[in-house]
């Protein structure tokens, strides 16, 4: 099993009081498996992704990645984990504005020590990014930026890819094409994929779908 979450709980304290976001989540994702995470707004999808990605701490339960318990990690280990074990794709792209497309794509792979020029070249061609390699993020459209963000994650070939609405900014046809490509490339790279989406249509295209409601998995 690549990722194993057991009885995971997470709450936030706000001005209105304590809000329970996740309330006992059990979820396993196997190697090369793709899992769709759906649910209404505020159901805890992004929070679950952040916990799996080592960006945030769970209040209770365990998050085990390839046999290692994230709760036991200090900041240094969490940073190492994010650099080498996880790839994140955000809805807002979160590209590095100071680097051009080529440098953005290779950035994570180089940090993780898994840079492969041939693999990156193949990726950029398949994602249609070859003509834009010397451009900067601000010179690209939203769809192009999203493809760069996906390429960056796939180039690093992490064991686990966490994607938060990766096609949310794309039109349906482009979104479908990009998702298809993402699934196939993730499979090629041997990466597990946990993908947040509102779209049941997209969710059906993944190996498995999980629905979150009120901080619990209901299906």
């Amino acid at each position: 099993m690549t990722l194993s979450m057991t009885a995971v709980r997470k709450s936030y304290t706000t001005a209105e009081g304590v809000i329970e976001i996740l309330n006992g989540i059990d979820l396993d994702v196997g190697a090369s498996e793709s899992v769709a995470l759906t649910g209404e707004s505020g159901s805890g999808k992004s929070t679950l992704l952040h916990l799996a990605g080592g960006l945030d701490h769970a209040d209770g339960g365990s998050v085990i990645m390839q046999g290692q318990d994230l709760a036991k990690f200090g900041e240094r280990e969490r940073a190492d984990y994010r650099r080498t074990q996880v790839g994140l794709v955000f809805q807002q792209f979160n590209l590095i504005p100071s680097l051009n497309v080529a440098a953005n794509i290779s950035f994570h792979a180089k940090l993780a020590g898994r840079y492969d020029a041939a693999w990156e070249l193949d990726l950029t061609e398949r994602l249609g990014l070859a003509p834009y390699l010397s451009r900067f993020p601000e010179q690209l459209s939203g769809g192009q930026q999203q493809r760069v963000a996906i390429a960056r994650t796939l180039a690093a070939r992490p064991p686990l890819i966490l994607a938060d609405e990766p096609t949310g900014n794309l039109d349906e046809a482009t979104g479908d094409a990009v998702l298809e490509l993402m699934l196939s490339l993730a499979k090629n790279a041997g990466s597990a994929l946990l993908l947040v989406t509102h779209s049941m249509r997209l969710a059906h295209r993944l190996d498995r779908k999980v629905i979150l409601r009120g901080g619990r998995i209901v299906e």
Binding site: L55, Y81, R83, L88, P97, L111
Partner: peptide, 14 residues
Amino acid sequence: PQLAPVWAMGIRRR
């Protein structure tokens, strides 16, 4: 917003 992605990719705050 410029630093958060670098942090997310495994560079510590320190």
